[in-house]
Simulated scan of single mutants.
Amino acid sequence: MTGHDIVFGFGAHSGIDEAPELLRMAQQADRDGLDLFSLSDHPYIGGRLDAYAAIGFILGRTQHIAGLANVTNLPTRPAPMLARTVTSLSALSGGRVVLGMGAGGLWDRIADMGVPRLSQGDAVDAFEEAIVLVKKLSGGGPPVTFQGRHYQVHQIDPAPVAAPPVWTGSNGPRSLAATGRVADGWIPGHAADWLSERYRTSRPIIDEAAAAVGRDPREIRTIYNFPGRITDRPLPATRDHEGRWIGGSAGQWVEELTGAVLEHDASGFILFSGSQGTADLMTLGRWAGEIVPAVREAIAKENG
C-alpha cells in the first residue's frame, strides 16, 4: 500500500475454527474494493491463527486487498526476522502489506512464551529500534550493521524490496514520540477516535516529535479502529453519553466519516462490530457497498 488515499478496511476473525469464514470475508472484501483486512497478533493464545501465517495465506487467495497485523506482537517476533517476513510478503503480494507495530502490552503472557520481560521504557526503546532496523533491512543497498541496545546485526544484506508502511499502536508519551520520529502511521488505542480526549492529548506528541527530527507531521497518518453498528434507520444519537461513536444508518456513517477526513485529517478506518469484535458478512457488505463508496465520492467532490 502506498500513497495517502483514505483507506477503508475491517477487523477479521483470527480463531483457528473461524478460518473458513476469515477467508470468505477477506475474499468478499477484496471483490468489494476494500483496502485492508487486519488480524490481531496474540501468539500465546492457542486457539488463534498465527497472524503472519494467516496474512500470507489470505494474500495468496486475494488480488487487491492488503493485510495488517493490528498490531504485531513485537517482543515475540525479533526485528531482523520480522523484516524478512514483511518484505517477503510484500514481494509475493505486490506490496499488499502494512506493518502494524506495538511495543508489547500483555507482558505476563508474553513472558509466558519464554520472552525476557522488559520494563515499559526498555520495551519502547526496543520498539523504536525495531522500526528503524526493519526499514534498514529493506529497499536494497549495502550490507547493514546495526548496534542498538536491543538489536544488533552485522553485515546483513537488506531485502531488495521497499519496507511496507509502518503503523503503530502507540499509547504512552514515549511510544507516541517514537511514532513521530520513525513511523508512517498511528492507530489510536482503545478504539479512540478524532473526538476523544486520547486523540487530543496524543496526536500533538507525535507531531512535535516528528517536527523535532525534521519530518512533516502530516506524513504520519492516523487510521482508526472504528467499532459501531450499521442500522436500517437513523439513530436519534450516534454517540453515547461519553461521546463514543455507537453507529447509525449508512447515511449517518457517511456524514461522520466524511467529516472526520475533511475536518480532522483522518486517513483511514478499520471497521469492527459495535462490541469491538469482527463484523459479520452482511455488515461488511453494507460497509463496502453503501458507506465506503459514498465517503470516497463525498471526499472526491470536496477536493474536486
Rank of each mutant, 00 (worst) to 15 (best):
L235W: 00
A210D: 09
I223P: 02
D240G: 06
I230C: 08
A209W: 07
P173V: 01
S170G: 14
P217Y: 01
W194P: 03
R239I: 02
R203T: 04
D157M: 12
H190L: 10
S170T: 09
R221P: 12
Q155V: 13
P160V: 05
P158N: 10
V182L: 10
I187H: 11
D157Y: 07
Y151L: 04
A192N: 02
Y199N: 12
G185E: 00
I220L: 01
I230Y: 06
P234L: 06
P165R: 15
A192W: 00
Q152D: 07
P236L: 01
A192M: 01
F226H: 15
A159N: 12
P188Y: 03
L195N: 15
P173A: 00
T231Y: 04
P165S: 12
R203E: 07
A163K: 02
P165K: 14
F146L: 02
F226A: 13
P234K: 02
G243L: 07
S175T: 11
R233E: 15
W186A: 06
E219I: 01
R244W: 09
P188G: 11
D184S: 06
Q147V: 10
Y224P: 09
A159K: 06
R215L: 05
W186H: 11
R229D: 15
T179E: 01
I223K: 01
A209Y: 04
Q155T: 13
R215P: 08
G243S: 09
V153P: 00
P160Y: 01
A209F: 04
W194C: 10
E219F: 08
R244V: 11
A177P: 03
I206C: 09
A162K: 11
A192V: 00
D232R: 08
H241Q: 15
H190S: 14
G214E: 02
P236R: 04
A212N: 02
E208P: 10
H190M: 14
R181K: 11
P227R: 09
D193W: 12
D232K: 07
Q152N: 14
N171Q: 14
P204W: 05
N225S: 12
Q147R: 15
T238V: 08
R218M: 12
S196Q: 03
S202N: 11
D216F: 03
P204C: 06
A212Q: 05
I156A: 13
A159Q: 13
G214T: 03
I205M: 10
L176V: 11
R215A: 05
R239L: 03
P234F: 03
I220T: 01
V153T: 08
I220M: 00
R229Q: 14
Y224K: 09
D232N: 12
G180M: 01
Y151T: 02
G180V: 03
R203M: 06
G243M: 05
D157Q: 15
W167Y: 15
P164Q: 09
A191L: 11
V161C: 08
Y199I: 13
H190Q: 14
